[in-house]
Structure formats: C-alpha cells, structure tokens
Amino acid sequence: MQYAEPIDNLIKAISRLPGIGEKTATRLALYILNAKKEYVEELAANLLGVKEKVALCSVCMTFSDTDPCVICADAGRDAEIICVVSDYKDMMALEGMGGFKGRYHILHGNLAPLKGIGPEELRIRELLARIESQGIKEVILATGFDAEGESTSAYLAKLLKPYNIKLTRLASGIPVGSYVEFMDGATLGRALEGRREVS
C-alpha cells in the first residue's frame, strides 16, 4: 500500500532537505496534512517569500530583503572596516555577539581545490571593487580555521597586500572558559604564537 500521490510527492520533496531522511520526511508530511489550513498557508507563503523577497545586498553580498541591507544602510556603523566572512551563518554569529560595529563582506564559500571552487566562484571581485571605491581602512579576515578557511585567508591577504590597507586576521587559540592542560598541540601553538602584551 502506497501513500496517496500528493502525500507521496510531499514526502519526496521534504526528504530532499539536508539532514532529513525518509522517516522524518514522512512524519513532517503527515503533520502538515493534519495541521490547520491557516498554518499550511502561512508556511507555503513563507517558503515562497524567502525565494521571492530575499536577494543579495549589492554592497556586502549578504541575504537581505532590502538593497542595500540594514547593516550597509546603517550610517552609525563604521564603513571603513570590512569583516570578510565565508558565509551568511558566520556573519550572523558575529552579529549575534553584538560588539562589531563595522560592515561585512560575504564570500559565499571558501577556496576548495577538492571541490573545484576557485576565486571566480567566490565574491572576491565585489570585495576588490569595494576596496577600490569606498576608501576602506581595514579588512578583517574572518574565514574559518580549517584548511580551506586558512588558505582562503592567505589568498586574500596576498591579493589585498598592494592596496596598502590594514589587514587583520581573527585570533585563534584557547577558547573562552577552557583550560590550558586540555588543549591539543596545534591550538596551544597558535595561542602561543598569537600571544599579546597585557597592561
């Protein structure tokens, strides 16, 4: 016995979402089937809404429903500091911290030789255009600290050197709230290398 065709189609569509297998998809589909019609209408409208209303901000390349995005349009933020991140989630994490008052640039990925992702696939050209036209003073490289993130940062550092601006990289080392004795060698090495003067 098979599910009725519309239900089966919904299950198949849901199971294409990341991290969702057929069992979970079936559970979600049946929930939707039993849910109130208003809820389902709202869900459908929201699904379409993100596709129709959200586009890339023409300045920083973040996902936004306005152009420029809220951050780029905020005159209270320092337009001379750009924090370069690999993706939208990274930007949201930094924003969540709340202490950064500059602007962002989202690359939408990292250089990844094994996946065939080169500089052309990232939003690097847009970053260069910004630096050339907007009088940027500092670029903070905030890509990840895995091999891909590190090499992307190193590539950008090389590329941006001729522009004669301040280039900084996020610190890496011992996380807040942890102990020296439990750290691995690589992390400790980094922490020691990036030590700073106090007082």
Binding site: P113, L114, A147, E150, S151, T152
Partner: peptide, 15 residues
C-alpha cells in the same frame, strides 16, 4: 601547505 593556496591546490591534486 595550508597557508598557501597554490601549494594546497597542488597537494590536493596529488591526493
């Protein structure tokens, strides 16, 4: 290798 994209991509080619 990890701080030089040219070297990293050559290493990735090998693997």
């Amino acid at each position: 290798l990890k701080v030089d994209i040219d070297k990293l991509s050559q290493a990735c080619y090998l693997i």
